[in-house]
Design a protein around this nucleic acid. Structure first.
Lengths: 157, 157
DNA sequence: TTTGCTAATGAGACTCGATCTCAAGTCACA
DNA sequence: TGTGACTTGAGATCGAGTCTCATTAGCAAA
């Protein structure tokens, strides 16, 4: 993410808080700066760890309370990859319709967008009497690297 | 599901157990009969409750131990709808590539299949260097009924 | 049948991500 | 500076899912 986009996202979130008459606290600032200083997908626990490096007073509760605000503001996307924890994506504002392929062997995640896919989704939904609010296509796959390795050194994290 | 399909699925699962040198116990029988006597999506907890009506000795642990066998056999599909529990679909064997639209207002779930969608998914994955293992498209939407009602009597469960 | 091996079981402890509670702190505005 | 509502951190709690372990029960061979 370019520096400009980062600060724009941060700015948007602070405006979002103001609009909702919510306070801009040091803890929220630390969390938001953390979120928009990375391109990476992250878990709540990771966000806590990273945010504490900026402000050691940030607590788990505040992270879990801020995350819904971030998704509600439309700047961050909450995702489910079939793991037992949620994954958050800070690139949502720039690419609101992107999808994910995840390699089951090495957990690599690749994002992609497809206009054809969107069109098709809307078409199908309409035929079934629905109006699309959001969509999430998740493809579980195995990547080339893993095929080369024979997927022998799996799950290195 | 037609009666024939039901007993066919049950039969397939018992064969699956045999192939893996696993035993056919009363508890497993009760669970499998429960699964293939409904078309409905269900949670692990629901499956426990229903199975206990057939055999009160069925325990939570056994349900949770049997579920992975059912998905491994390819007869049941495990799904994630962004809730904090998993949902299982007993119609998988007959429609292995179906997708879901969920009405955010009334939790109605509609299944659909689309060859065009599958083709597109495979094409995209290949271009990105992945081989598809499974895919899950989830569309969150609002349905006609809810639009008519103005979504005023939401979440009736 | 009986026997013996071993998979399978139930009860309940446990894990862990996520949420809730509540007393204390802090922000904004008068 | 005072007031009241919003936020906070610590830790209790929740709940889905997993694990442990002593006991039970398939099932194949005798």
């Amino acid at each position: 993410m370019a520096d400009l986009e980062r600060s724009a996202a941060k700015e948007k979130f602070l405006n979002f808080l103001e609009q909702k008459n919510l306070r801009i606290t040091n803890q929220r600032r630390a969390i938001v700066e953390t979120v928009f200083s990375t391109d990476q997908h992250f878990t709540a626990e990771q966000l806590l760890e990273w945010s504490r490096k900026r402000d050691s007073s940030v607590s788990r509760a505040t992270v879990y309370r801020t995350l819904p605000l971030l998704t509600e503001s439309g700047l961050v996307h909450e995702m489910d990859f079939g793991k037992d924890y949620k994954i958050y994506d800070p690139n949502y504002a720039d690419h609101p319709n992107h999808n994910h392929i995840i390699c089951d062997d090495c957990d690599k995640i690749v994002e992609f967008e497809s206009e054809r896919l969107e069109t098709l989704e809307n078409e199908i939904s309409q035929n079934l009497g629905f109006t699309v609010k959001s969509q999430q296509l998740r493809i579980n796959a195995s990547c080339e690297d893993m095929k080369k390795l024979g997927a022998c050194n799996k799950k290195g994290h």
